[in-house]
């Protein structure tokens, strides 16, 4: 470091337009924040891109833009979410995630301390997941044109031969499994939304699921579909799969794991937990004869200890999701229209 350059003062100050100008301020931001925390040989090379050597197999690529308010929430922040979200998307294809790229849109005025906290969180999450952030980009937009920070991550992984996961492979008779309690992430976020605040112990479930996926595929290589029920929750994701596979699903409400406090928060706000987002859960569909074995493997993994078989794929020309209610009736679990809004009636 040049003796005339003071340390990058992250505890004070905020992002301004010079941080995106391509000049010295930007170079220092990249060096003193991004490289410092995310450091690896690819980033250190300082090139426009990264040259990666991949193990044999088919390459999986997935990309996801992350926008969230508030940026920091119980159980996580936008930083770890941006890592977990994309790692999980790669994992849902059956692949081992290897590298990430990250694009940042910073809003003028974002406190540098917040940015550092977010990048540290990304660093921890990517280290834990065993994926390197190989290349990235930073832009700054004027105040009012962003929501603090937006992060787009792209993940690269490799899927072994013999693994064929796709949303169109669900067949009548197959079983539907979930890896744990539903709705935790969405409710944790809502509890901090302005004008809705309530006090709760509920934390976001944001986590990387690729190790759970690896264990599941090792036990049952013939899993047909894996998907993480993020936005729109279980309901939206199952409707997508049903459309792709042109089959219906019948859920058993009694079997669906939902924390009592998540259920209570949903009652209070008039929301349906089946439509609430998750960031550390997956849905698996497999042949009926594999279901129990898969369930055992999931339950013996820390990220799947509350796993459950929640339903069955059925023939249905309307490709509808239906549910046998705890009460003893039946209902349709439809696509959601827009975002679920808290309601009073």
């Amino acid at each position: 470091m040049n003796a005339f350059e003071p340390d990058f003062a992250t505890s004070a100050g905020a992002v301004d337009m010079t941080h995106g100008s391509g000049g010295r301020a930007m170079a220092r931001l990249i060096r003193d924040l991004f490289h410092k925390h995310l450091g690896n040989p690819h980033l250190a090379a300082g090139n426009d891109g990264a040259v990666l050597t991949l193990p044999p197999g088919r390459v999986v690529v997935s990309t996801d833009g992350h926008v969230i308010s508030p940026l920091f929430f119980p159980g996580g922040d936008i930083g770890c979410l941006a890592v977990h979200g994309t790692v999980n998307d790669v994992a849902m294809m059956g692949a081992k995630p290897l590298y990430l790229t990250a694009g940042f849109i910073l809003e003028e005025g974002l406190p540098l301390a917040d940015l550092e906290r977010i990048i540290r969180s990304m660093a921890v999450a990517s280290r834990e997941a065993g994926v390197a952030i190989a290349t990235g980009d930073t832009k700054v937009v004027e105040k009012g044109k962003g929501d603090g920070v937006f992060i787009t991550t792209t993940g690269v992984g490799v899927v072994a031969d013999g693994i064929e996961l796709s949303g169109d492979r669900a067949r009548p008779g197959d079983k539907v499994l979930v890896s744990g309690t539903l709705g935790d992430h969405g409710v944790a976020i809502l509890s901090k939304r302005q004008n809705l605040e309530f006090e709760t112990e509920i934390c976001s479930d944001t986590t990387a699921l690729h190790e759970l996926v690896a264990a599941m595929l090792a036990a049952v290589p013939g899993i047909r579909v894996l998907r993480d029920p993020t936005r729109g929750g279980l309901a939206a994701t199952l409707n997508e799969i049903a459309q792709q596979s042109q089959a219906g699903v019948i859920l058993d409400e009694r079997a669906i794991p939902i924390r009592p406090d998540v259920a209570a928060a949903c009652e209070l706000l008039g929301l349906d937990p089946l439509y609430v987002a998750n960031e550390g859960k997956l849905i698996a569909i497999c042949a009926a004869q594999d279901a129990e074995r898969l369930l055992d493997v999931m339950r013996s993994h820390p990220h799947g200890k509350n796993a459950a078989i929640v339903g069955e794929v059925v023939e249905d020309k309307h490709a509808m999701i239906q549910m046998r209610t705890k009460f003893g009736g039946a209902r349709v679990v439809d696509w959601i229209a827009g975002e679920q809004l808290p309601r009073i009636c």
Binding site: F198, E199, T200, E201, I202, P260, D261, A263, A264, A265, E267, L268
Partner: peptide, 22 residues
């Protein structure tokens, strides 16, 4: 229906419903 767990001096209270407090 929620259970009252504390009452302020004024007209406000905190209620609990399965670990949710409002």
């Amino acid at each position: 229906p929620a259970r009252v767990i504390s009452i302020d001096d004024g007209e406000m209270a905190v209620v609990a419903l399965e670990g949710i407090k409002k």
